[in-house]
Amino acid sequence: MRKPVELDPDVDDEAPAGNDITPYDEQHYVTYLRLLDAKTDGADWNEVARIVLHRDPIGDETLTRRCWESHLARAEWLSRAGYRRILEQAVAAGR
């Protein structure tokens, strides 16, 4: 049975790093897509942080900016190279 897609999950202070797709990544695919869409649309990072990441850039700008940057970087990695890892891991798991 497939897990339902989470449309608006809470996020950690920083996204994962490295070359493996993590359970966190799987839970946040929609978050990553929303971040990429916002970047394409030229949206202000403060607004994106509030809406997509549930963060308050006014309350803690430094932490919020780091959270936004790390999640956007992870989204960009997934769109460039990480998607290959998704396919490789799925094949390895026999899905």
Rank of each mutant, 00 (worst) to 15 (best):
P23G: 07
D25S: 02
V48Q: 02
R65W: 07
I51E: 15
Y29N: 03
I21Q: 02
T31R: 02
A17I: 11
P16Y: 09
L53D: 08
G18K: 06
V5E: 12
L53S: 06
L36C: 03
L78N: 00
V5P: 00
P57F: 01
L33D: 09
Y29S: 01
P9I: 12
L7A: 13
A49M: 13
Q27T: 14
A90Y: 01
L87W: 10
V48A: 01
E88Q: 14
K3F: 11
P16D: 06
I21W: 02
H71P: 09
E69P: 10
L78P: 00
L78E: 01
A92W: 01
T62F: 04
Q89P: 14
L72H: 04
G59K: 03
D56C: 05
D37Y: 05
L72A: 08
Y32V: 02
R55P: 02
E88D: 15
P16W: 06
L7V: 11
D41S: 07
A17F: 06
E88M: 10
A15V: 10
A49P: 07
E76Q: 10
Y83P: 02
G59E: 10
Q27Y: 08
I86M: 08
T31Y: 05
S70N: 12
R50M: 14
H28S: 03
A73F: 01
R66H: 12
R2P: 15
D10T: 05
L33R: 05
W68G: 00
D8Q: 09
R80C: 00
D12Y: 09
D56M: 07
A90F: 07
M1G: 14
G94P: 09
D56T: 10
P23L: 08
R55F: 02
L53E: 05
T64A: 07
A92C: 00
V11L: 07
N46L: 05
C67V: 00
V48Y: 02
P9T: 11
D41F: 00
S79T: 06
R66V: 10
A49I: 08
D60M: 05
R66Q: 15
Q89H: 11
A81G: 14
L72M: 12
P9R: 09
I51L: 11
